[in-house]
Design a protein around this nucleic acid. Structure first.
Length: 262
DNA sequence: AAATAACGCAACCGCGAGCAG
DNA sequence: ACTGCTCGCGGTTGCGTTATT
């Protein structure tokens, strides 16, 4: 396939956008939308390529963009999601309303990566078990379980659900593949520690808060949503105690390979 | 005050996925 | 099944700003 000539060869402009160009793009998109990015610059009278227009709109001109510094809470969410998803910036961005993948990528490389490295150095011995898996693995597992991949159109709460599902799939796979791994004993301290967590702050992300050390959750309204392995509650708003009862039952049944239908 | 280094961020590039013909 | 096209994503670059010497 022959690649389309680059912007410069087509006589198109590159580099920083002027306020005039911004205004033209905003006005055009407000009036006609952006059905076809490639055709848009010509229609709008801009000497830019469609890619450049798209990027400018997505990362800077969209009306729902949240400007300004990231809050501590947002940063913690990024760190947690990065542990879970890796460099899936768009997936992370879909969970942070008003933030773009580019912005998150930048903040990760300039601030958070260093911070995580520092903190990891400090708490090396307490480092949680990482969830392994490739895109291919995830897709396969999603197909097997009839689970839709994350879609940007989903609501925020559904996104949380997707995160949980993705992670529980990885964890489930790990568990199934490593049959030599014994079901860990839940110590009383786990529940007391988990229940004492401050989950009153909206969308506080936490990883590893399950009896098996491989869950992922969001706390809010004094409930804690978590998804160790295959989440029987589909990550809807359930209390921590409901989860606790379920997992205790699972452990008593002694069979974590075959997950019961709820 | 000037030079240099480090940082932050907008923008670009190349690739792959998905879709239509 | 193949081809060509568009879009979206992740990695990278380059420039302006700020901090340091």
């Amino acid at each position: 396939m022959v690649r389309a000539p680059c912007c410069e060869k087509m006589g198109l402009k590159k580099g920083p956008w002027t306020s005039e160009e911004d205004q033209i793009l905003i006005t055009h998109i407000q009036r006609f939308g952006h059905g076809n990015w490639r055709a848009l610059p010509k229609q709008a009278g801009l000497l830019r390529c469609g890619k450049s227009c798209r990027l400018r709109w997505i990362n800077y001109l969209r009306p729902d963009i949240k400007r300004g510094n990231f809050s501590r809470e947002e940063e913690e969410t990024i760190i947690s999601l990065h542990q879970l998803l890796g460099n899936k910036w768009s997936a992370i961005a879909s969970r942070l309303p008003g933030r773009t993948d580019n912005e998150i990528k930048n903040v990760w490389h300039t601030h958070l990566k260093k911070r995580v490295k520092q903190e990891a150095g400090q708490t090396l011995q307490q480092e949680p078990k990482r969830i392994k898996g490739t895109d291919q693995d995830n897709k396969k597992l999603m197909n097997v379980n009839n689970i839709d991949p994350v879609s940007p159109e989903r609501s925020y709460s559904s996104d949380i659900s997707s995160s949980c599902t993705e992670l529980s799939n990885f964890a489930l796979k790990e568990q199934c593949m490593d049959s030599s791994e014994e079901v860990p004993v839940i110590e009383d301290s786990f529940w007391s520690e988990a229940l004492s967590m401050d989950t009153s702050t909206s969308s506080t992300a936490a990883v590893e808060y399950t009896p098996f050390g491989c869950g992922f959750g969001f706390g809010y309204d004094q409930n804690y949503i978590t998804a160790p392995f295959n989440d029987p509650f589909n990550c809807t708003d359930v209390s921590y105690n409901d989860h606790r009862s379920f997992w205790l039952k699972m452990l008593q049944s002694g069979d974590l390979q075959e997950l019961p239908e709820i």
